[in-house]
């Protein structure tokens, strides 16, 4: 890599807090464009907190951090939406807008991020719904979908703006193995096209199939275990 090239994610000596409780200390993480990272660790070990820090839901108060060109420390409130537009976030609890259909959920994000042309909007919605295997479910309301389908809508929404980084918090947790595999293939393809993907998961089966960088949250630290073999 060119020494001058900037990392898409760059955390240096970051301490992550939930309210006053220290969750992760001295976090150092540098990721390049197109990298695929497995983020693992026990429940409550800080995976979600790390992701929340990356999309500025948790304020970065100690250390230095930069994501997709945005400096996280003292990031102004009005800049947070601009940062999030560069990210595709797949939430553990989906965070779909329950009062509107799948298409309207996607439309909301597109309108909020400046899409104007109807043809382009329609084409892109069709494209992402097809990608996640829901081409016929656009008119359904979120509550009419199964957990797995809702998760796929959340993934479609994360993909819609061609993000620089995808942060996925256990995106396959609610999916059957076949759908999980398809989603994983999709995220890998996207990663190979230059999008950085951080995927928090407990799905060791898929990790073994798709070898990639592994970082672990343990004992309030972030540890790079890419070189270690995964235990059965």
């Amino acid at each position: 890599m060119d020494a001058e090239q900037k990392h898409i994610i760059d955390l240096k000596e970051v301490n992550i807090y939930q309210q006053k409780h220290l969750i992760l200390s001295n976090v150092n993480l540098q990721l390049e464009a197109g990298e695929f990272v497995w983020l693992i660790g026990k429940t409550g070990s800080g995976k979600s907190s790390l992701l929340k820090t990356l999309y500025a839901e948790l304020e970065l108060t100690e250390g230095e951090g930069e994501v997709a060109g945005f400096t996280l420390k003292k990031l102004k409130t009005r800049k947070i939406p601009l940062l999030r537009r560069k990210l595709g976030i797949v939430f553990q609890d989906f965070q779909l807008l329950s009062d509107r259909s799948v298409i309207e959920n996607l439309l909301f994000v597109m309108r909020a991020t400046g899409w104007k042309k109807k043809d382009e909007i329609k084409d892109r919605i069709d494209e992402v719904l097809h990608l996640v295997g829901l081409p016929t479910k656009g008119f359904k309301m979120p509550h009419e979908l199964s957990g797995g389908e809702q998760q796929r809508v959340a993934i479609a929404r994360a993909l819609i703006n061609h993000p620089s980084v995808i942060l996925a918090d256990e995106p396959t947790g609610n999916l059957d193995p076949a759908t999980s595999g398809r989603i994983l293939d999709l995220l890998r393809d996207i990663s190979q096209q230059g999008t950085t993907v951080i995927m928090a998961t407990h799905d060791y089966e898929h990790m073994r199939k798709f070898q990639s960088k592994i970082i672990v949250c343990e004992n309030a630290k972030l540890v790079d275990k890419s070189s270690e073999t995964l235990a059965e």
């Binding site: 976030i89 807008l97 991020t113």
Partner: peptide
């Protein structure tokens, strides 16, 4: 909150 999380401005 969901709207905020997907990048919509206030």
């Amino acid at each position: 909150r969901s709207m905020q999380l997907v990048g919509a401005t206030s």
